[in-house]
Amino acid sequence: MLPLPVFDHHRPRTLSAALDLLARLGDKAVVLAGGTDVLPNMKHGLVEPDHVVSIAGIDELRGISLDREGDDDKLVLGAGARLAEIESSILVRRVAPALAEAAGQVGGPHHRAMGTLGGNICLDTRCRYYNQTYFWRKSLGFCLKKDGTVCHVVRGGSRCVAAASNDTAPALIALDADLHLLGPRGARIVAAHDFYVADGIKNTVLEPGELVVRVSITRRPGRRSSFEKLRRRNAIDFPLLSIAVRLDVSGVETPRVDAADVVVSALGARPRRVRAASNVRPGTPFDVAARELAEGAYAECKPLPNVDDDTEWRREMVPALVERAVTRLEG
């Protein structure tokens, strides 16, 4: 087996107890929810905490509901909601279909039953030179994300380009979701788009001791969304490419696209919002929108050989997936 390092285990019953504990332990502690990302990384010697704080049992973090705030309906998901719950939730499929589709394509059925929304949001970035055993990485000479000073993807590069590989991130960004964080410096709300930064070593703005507590998505009339994932197998694999599309549609007989948002991920550390989507003119027919968005995405997305070396093919797949995601929304 792959032994875990030695650490102390903590299982706080309530959110406040967890936050106090994390504040006290600082960066010597690691948060454990589903364990499907942290534990493999610990077994690879990528994370060597002195303390593990298990928050899977905190009920306050569970739950999926539709709350009314002012005149908006807000879909609220607890960070502890299991991905399998999100995948099969009627509410999520109605209000944020892209999120339900994304959650439904994470890893395999067991990963979705154990993994949480918060855990997926905070998924460590991935790279085939990083997610390997200690022996393998030592033979490689390590990489600048862990234990080393050299990047093997970009020769002579000084910035880590490990890829954001969490399927829910592009969906949350495209749906303008808000992430509710709670930490030693109190509560704050960060838009999903601003939550991620272009640094492969740590690609979120989360501070030590801070937790993602809830996610809220405002329901917009006429809003449709979809998610496409590129992988070689139909289960277990991480994405080679993932694309979330959000369209604001009007017109009943001949639906027209008035606004769009396309987010492409698994390229670099930060999911990329395609600029072309922002200048879609209101009233664009679906086929025109599909072509424009596909070409725009193709022009802006240049995959790196970080998760795979079929970069040419992955780039070819960007327009194909965008087109499929958009046409599916014509409905």
Binding site: G108, R128, N131, Q132, T133, W136, S139, L140, R232, R233, N234, A235, I236, D237, F238
Partner: peptide, 28 residues
Amino acid sequence: LLEEHVIGPDGLHKGPNLLDYRIPTSLD
């Protein structure tokens, strides 16, 4: 369709685990 046991120019196996070296699941 799926399997390739590839060793890089530096002699390192491309991905010695069941995530990088893919065998089919029941859906493939």
